[in-house]
Amino acid sequence: MKTLGYYNGKFGELEEMSIPMNDRVCWFGDGVYDAGPCRNYKIFAIDEHIDRFFNSAGLLDIEMPVTKQELKELLQEMVQKMDTGDLFVYYQVTRGTGIRNHVFPEGKANLWIMLKPDTVDAGDKPIKLITTPDTRFFHCNIKTLNLIPSVMAAEKAKKAGADETVLYRPGKRVTECAHSNCHIIKDGKLITAPTDNLILPGIGRAHLIRMCKKLEIPVSETPYTLEEMFAADEILVTSSSKLCLCADELDGKPVGGKATELVNKLRQALLKEYMDATE
């Protein structure tokens, strides 16, 4: 199959799938999701993603309809049905189905899965960034379906001819990007925002930190500002499908380019980790 969808036990091409109008996603966006890349029919970092998925659901009191192992087996079963093994694997749960009511319905969540062909960005070309205030709520550590601020920020980047939007809070504290984590390198040290309730604990972020420690690159998980980002030796952007991108422009101004050797070392090591795990 070229694409594949799943909803509570039903399979089909994505354009063939449908959902009940009373699924709470329609009224409230009431659910959580996770996603990651697959290569050679092997889903990368699947256990880490599923752990985060279940944690997001637990923080919102969503009753999962499957166990972690059952979900892992279902995802792998679906991957094997695809024409290509290079995929983007997306899954979400919504709180249930019922007449619109803010109060939770009883019962288990609805499980959705979506597979489509995709590949990981090798990160060999620099990207352009813009900035915008972070207007999201204070539960950014939960990977919810409420993504309107991120959608608007991503559209703003597109219209500006940029690749991503850096979000910042009052005081110009940098949090993350519209759909990525961001980091800076200064004086040979990686600085990344702490995993509080203002950012998503990204899987790509975790792999970047672990790789830095493996390569004996110091890591500081502390808040930093836009001013520090502009003055950084390098600006990095990571996500599950963009392992390590480097920016050369921020709000139309040139940035980075002062620690190219270190960035290439990190990028190549992360790409090798991904390739080896999905060989």
Score class of each variant (00 low, 15 high):
Q268H: 10
F88N: 12
C38P: 10
K214R: 12
I62W: 04
D121K: 06
F11A: 00
N22A: 10
G85K: 04
T84E: 11
A160V: 11
T131K: 06
P254W: 11
S56W: 00
I185T: 04
L71Y: 10
T192V: 08
D51E: 14
M1A: 15
I191A: 02
Y224H: 13
I130L: 12
D276I: 02
L60F: 06
G171K: 01
I235W: 05
I235P: 01
E176I: 00
V25G: 11
P105T: 07
L245W: 01
G256I: 13
D86E: 15
N40T: 05
T132N: 11
I184Y: 00
Y7W: 13
G31A: 03
D187I: 01
D86L: 14
M114Y: 09
V255S: 12
R95I: 09
V89P: 10
D34K: 02
I148Y: 07
P149W: 10
L236E: 03
I203L: 09
F88A: 11
R95W: 08
D61Y: 08
E164R: 03
D134C: 09
L243T: 07
T195I: 10
T278A: 08
E228C: 02
D23K: 00
N8T: 09
H179S: 15
M1D: 08
L75N: 08
E106V: 03
C182T: 10
T132M: 13
E279V: 07
I130P: 11
T278C: 15
L87M: 07
T225F: 00
A277L: 10
P126K: 00
L266Q: 03
A247Q: 11
K108V: 02
K265P: 05
T84R: 03
Y274K: 08
E221N: 04
E221D: 03
L60V: 09
E63S: 09
V25D: 02
M17R: 03
P201R: 04
M64E: 07
E227R: 05
L129G: 12
D233Y: 07
E279H: 12
K156H: 14
